[in-house]
Amino acid sequence: MTGERTVGERTIGEQVVGEQVAGGGSGTDDFYGRLRAYEGRAAVAGGEGRDAVNEPMIRHWCEAMGDTNPAYPASAPPTMLQVWTMGGLSGHTGGSIRSEAYDELLALLDGAGCTSVVATDCEQEYLRPLRPGDRVTFDAVIESVSPRKTTKLGSGHFVTTRMDIRAGGELVGKHRFRILKYAPARRSSAAKERTTEVKEARRPRPVINRDNAGFWAGVAEHRLLIQRCTDCGTLRFPWLPGCGACGCLEWETVEASGAGTVFSYVVMHHPPFPAFDPPYAVGLIELAEGVRMISNITGVPYDKVRIGMPVELEFLRVDADLELPVFRGAVA
C-alpha cells in the first residue's frame, strides 16, 4: 500500500497548522533520534485473537453499523479486521501483548508530555474473507515515528504500526494504523471551562469503610480521634485495623487535644486539582500526642508556613456535605 497515499494531507492536514522538525537545540534532535531508533522493531509479537471469528460478534457489529449486507454473518465484514485483534475490556489473556520496545516508545513520548492519543489513519488490505471459526494471529512492527508536528489538538509525534493478520497461518489481512501521541494544546475556551470547574468542583469525598468509620464519626462530632492499642498502648494514625507494633486487633480511641506543630510541609503549585486553588501548603502535623497527620494549614499564607510552627485543630466546613479537621497556624 506504500506509495498509494491518495487520501491526501487534507483532513489532518487541515489540523496541521504548522510543522516543525523539532530543531533549535541538539537536545530535541537527540530526542527524535531516540524515537526513530524504534522504527522497524516489533510492536506486537505472537498476538492471538481473544475470540475466534464468530456470528454473534459479527451480528452485533452489523447492528451497530446498520449494515444489512446478506453476506454477513456467514462471512465477517472485511472492515471488522482490527476487531479480531482487540483486547476488549479485560485485555489480552496473559496481559498486554505490546512488545517491550513499543511500551518503551510510548513511555518516552509520555515522558515528553505527549500523554494524549488519537487515531488518525487506518489502511487495511483484505486478502481473503474471514469466516466464523477462523482463529486469527497477528504480528505488528513499528513502521515509522514522525518528527514533532504541531496540530490543532496539540504538538506531538505520529506513530505508524503495520500489522499482519493470519488465520491458520495464512495471511488474510494487512492493517496499517497511525496514531498521534500529543501534548494537548491549551485552548482559551478550555482554560475558561477549567476555571469554572475549579469554582464548582467539590473536594474529593473520603472513602469511609469499617476500618476508619470511627474516625469520621469523631469528625462529625468535632472530635479528632486517635486509635490506641489495648494491648501495648501504642497510638496509631491514620486508622488501621491492627497495631503496627504488636499486631493486636483490639483498640480504643483517644481524643486529641488539638495542639500540634508543623513537622514538615510542601507547597503545591502544579498540577492543579479541581476544588483546590494553588499555591497552597500541605502540612504534616505532629499532634501533641505524638502521631502525625497530613492536613491543611489555615490562617497562614502558604509562604509563611514553617517547620516547628505551632498549630491548633479546627474543623473546616468545605461544603454542605463535608467537614474536615485542619490546623490553624499562628504567624510568629
Binding site: 472485511p78 472492515t79 488518525t120 489513519d121 487506518c122 489502511e123 474473507p129
Partner: peptide
C-alpha cells in the same frame, strides 16, 4: 451490492 468484495479501505480522520 453484496457481491462485490472489498480489497482495501484506507481512511484518514479529521473533525
Amino acid at each position: 451490492g453484496p457481491h462485490v468484495r472489498l480489497q482495501k479501505v484506507a481512511i484518514r480522520l479529521g473533525a
